[in-house]
């Protein structure tokens, strides 16, 4: 079987995880010309409740669009971290927002505890874009999509008038991701 990379973005409803999934999948599929799917699972609430968005990136046709053997897990809440780390593969990347996730699971994972919300708040000026900061970190850590592809996908997906804010958040995330990789 060919190359298959699985990402699960998890947290609570309203944190923008489905948007991040769509941007990541579009970056890979449209701008990097790979195959990608994005799917989602959330509760009936408009805000709150467990929410997850999954992206599969592959060089062949993707039949099953759900993640079962995850390469990279983003957890923005302790609940989502506790619930989903079991699907993370041996040596997989676990990225958490250290403000909300304090207990890391045992296991052979590459753990990254990053104050994602705090970075969005202090370095971008809006905690709202924590999702896009996380996208920047994911782009660096995974190396599965190109920076240019993600920037193009951000511009095509975010609401009009927020392009600069989101691009800034993305670049702050990229820088953070680069710094984390250098520490490894």
């Amino acid at each position: 079987m060919g190359f298959r990379y699985e990402v699960r973005l998890s947290g609570s409803g309203g944190q923008g995880l489905i948007l991040v999934g769509k941007v990541l999948a579009e970056a890979a599929a449209i701008y990097d010309d790979k195959n990608a799917t994005q799917s989602q699972s959330y509760g009936p609430e408009a805000r709150g409740g467990a929410s997850r968005s999954e992206v599969i990136i592959s060089d062949e046709d993707i039949d099953y669009p759900k993640a079962t053997n995850i390469d990279l897990l983003l957890a923005l809440t302790q609940e989502s971290c506790d619930k989903y780390y079991k699907d993370l593969k041996d040596g997989g990347i676990l990225l958490v927002d250290s403000e909300y996730v304090t207990q890391l699971p045992r296991g052979n994972f590459r753990n990254y505890k990053v104050p994602i919300s705090e970075i969005a708040r202090s370095q971008v000026g809006k905690v709202l874009v924590a999702n896009i900061v996380a996208l920047g970190i994911i782009t660096e850590l995974s190396g599965v999509v190109s920076r240019e592809a993600v920037e193009s996908a951000i511009l095509s997906r975010v609401p009009k008038g927020t392009e600069e804010l989101n691009l800034k958040a993305f670049r702050v995330g990229l820088e953070k991701g680069k710094a984390l990789k250098e520490k490894d």
Binding site: G21, K22, A25, E26, A29, I30, N35, A36, T37, Q38, S39, Q40, I62, P65
Partner: peptide, 9 residues
């Protein structure tokens, strides 16, 4: 729901 909400190329 999966076919309705899945995004693919």
């Amino acid at each position: 729901e999966i076919v309705g909400h899945v995004n693919e190329k």
